[in-house]
Simulated assay, not measured.
Amino acid sequence: MCSDACLDEKDIAMMRSCIRLDRDCADACVAAIRVMSRGGPLSAEMCRACAEACEACAMECEKHASMSEHCRLCAEACRTCADACRQMAA
Protein backbone atom coordinates (compact mmCIF):
# COMPACT_ATOMS: atom_id res chain seq x y z
CA MET A 1 0.00 0.00 0.00
CA CYS A 2 2.74 2.45 0.92
CA SER A 3 4.69 2.06 -2.32
CA ASP A 4 1.56 2.71 -4.37
CA ALA A 5 0.69 5.75 -2.25
CA CYS A 6 4.26 7.05 -2.62
CA LEU A 7 3.78 7.06 -6.38
CA ASP A 8 1.04 9.66 -5.87
CA GLU A 9 3.29 12.03 -3.93
CA LYS A 10 4.38 15.31 -5.55
CA ASP A 11 8.10 14.55 -5.35
CA ILE A 12 8.37 10.94 -6.48
CA ALA A 13 12.15 11.20 -6.75
CA MET A 14 12.31 11.91 -3.02
CA MET A 15 10.22 8.77 -2.40
CA ARG A 16 12.30 6.47 -4.64
CA SER A 17 14.16 4.76 -1.79
CA CYS A 18 10.94 4.36 0.16
CA ILE A 19 9.19 2.76 -2.81
CA ARG A 20 12.04 0.33 -3.39
CA LEU A 21 12.27 -0.66 0.26
CA ASP A 22 8.50 -1.07 0.50
CA ARG A 23 8.55 -3.49 -2.41
CA ASP A 24 11.64 -5.38 -1.27
CA CYS A 25 10.22 -5.69 2.23
CA ALA A 26 6.91 -7.03 0.95
CA ASP A 27 8.75 -9.61 -1.18
CA ALA A 28 10.95 -10.63 1.76
CA CYS A 29 7.88 -11.10 3.94
CA VAL A 30 6.12 -13.26 1.34
CA ALA A 31 9.23 -15.43 0.92
CA ALA A 32 9.61 -15.80 4.68
CA ILE A 33 5.95 -16.76 5.08
CA ARG A 34 6.27 -19.45 2.44
CA VAL A 35 9.40 -20.96 3.96
CA MET A 36 8.08 -20.74 7.54
CA SER A 37 4.78 -22.36 6.58
CA ARG A 38 6.70 -25.44 5.48
CA GLY A 39 8.81 -25.44 8.64
CA GLY A 40 11.96 -26.02 6.63
CA PRO A 41 15.53 -25.77 7.83
CA LEU A 42 15.86 -22.17 6.62
CA SER A 43 12.83 -20.90 8.54
CA ALA A 44 14.79 -19.07 11.23
CA GLU A 45 17.18 -17.63 8.65
CA MET A 46 14.28 -16.32 6.57
CA CYS A 47 12.66 -14.83 9.68
CA ARG A 48 15.84 -12.94 10.48
CA ALA A 49 16.12 -11.69 6.89
CA CYS A 50 12.50 -10.59 6.96
CA ALA A 51 13.08 -8.73 10.24
CA GLU A 52 16.06 -6.90 8.73
CA ALA A 53 14.06 -5.94 5.65
CA CYS A 54 11.21 -4.70 7.82
CA GLU A 55 13.58 -2.63 9.98
CA ALA A 56 15.15 -1.01 6.91
CA CYS A 57 11.73 -0.24 5.48
CA ALA A 58 10.50 1.17 8.80
CA MET A 59 13.54 3.45 9.09
CA GLU A 60 12.97 4.83 5.60
CA CYS A 61 9.23 5.28 6.05
CA GLU A 62 9.79 7.08 9.35
CA LYS A 63 11.68 9.78 7.42
CA HIS A 64 8.42 10.63 5.63
CA ALA A 65 5.94 9.83 8.40
CA SER A 66 5.29 13.44 9.37
CA MET A 67 4.26 14.26 5.79
CA SER A 68 2.59 11.03 4.73
CA GLU A 69 0.15 9.02 6.82
CA HIS A 70 0.75 5.96 4.66
CA CYS A 71 4.45 6.05 5.56
CA ARG A 72 3.63 6.36 9.26
CA LEU A 73 1.33 3.35 9.06
CA CYS A 74 3.86 1.39 7.04
CA ALA A 75 6.65 2.08 9.53
CA GLU A 76 4.41 0.95 12.37
CA ALA A 77 3.44 -2.26 10.54
CA CYS A 78 7.06 -2.97 9.64
CA ARG A 79 8.21 -2.62 13.25
CA THR A 80 5.45 -4.99 14.37
CA CYS A 81 6.40 -7.51 11.69
CA ALA A 82 10.12 -7.26 12.55
CA ASP A 83 9.36 -7.98 16.21
CA ALA A 84 7.21 -10.98 15.29
CA CYS A 85 9.87 -12.35 12.95
CA ARG A 86 12.58 -12.04 15.60
CA GLN A 87 10.39 -13.93 18.07
CA MET A 88 9.78 -16.72 15.55
CA ALA A 89 13.47 -16.96 14.71
CA ALA A 90 14.44 -17.29 18.38
Rank of each mutant, 00 (worst) to 15 (best):
M67L: 02
A53S: 15
E45N: 12
D22L: 04
E55C: 00
C71P: 01
M59C: 10
R86L: 11
M36I: 08
D11Y: 01
E55W: 00
M36K: 05
C29A: 05
R79V: 04
I12A: 10
S3G: 00
R38A: 15
R23H: 05
D27T: 10
V35H: 06
L42G: 09
A75M: 03
A58W: 08
E60S: 02
C61W: 01
R72P: 05
A44Y: 10
G40F: 03
M15A: 07
C57K: 01
E60A: 01
E52A: 15
C57W: 06
A5G: 05
A90P: 07
D24G: 14
C61P: 11
M88L: 13
M88T: 07
L7W: 06
A53D: 10
D8N: 15
S17G: 09
A32S: 12
L7V: 14
A28F: 11
M36R: 05
A28R: 13
R72I: 00
D24W: 00
K10Y: 09
L21Y: 14
M88R: 04
A26E: 03
R86M: 06
A13S: 05
R16A: 10
L73T: 02
L73Y: 05
C85S: 08
M88H: 10
S66K: 09
A75W: 01
V30L: 08
I12C: 06
A90Q: 14
A26S: 14
H70K: 01
A32C: 13
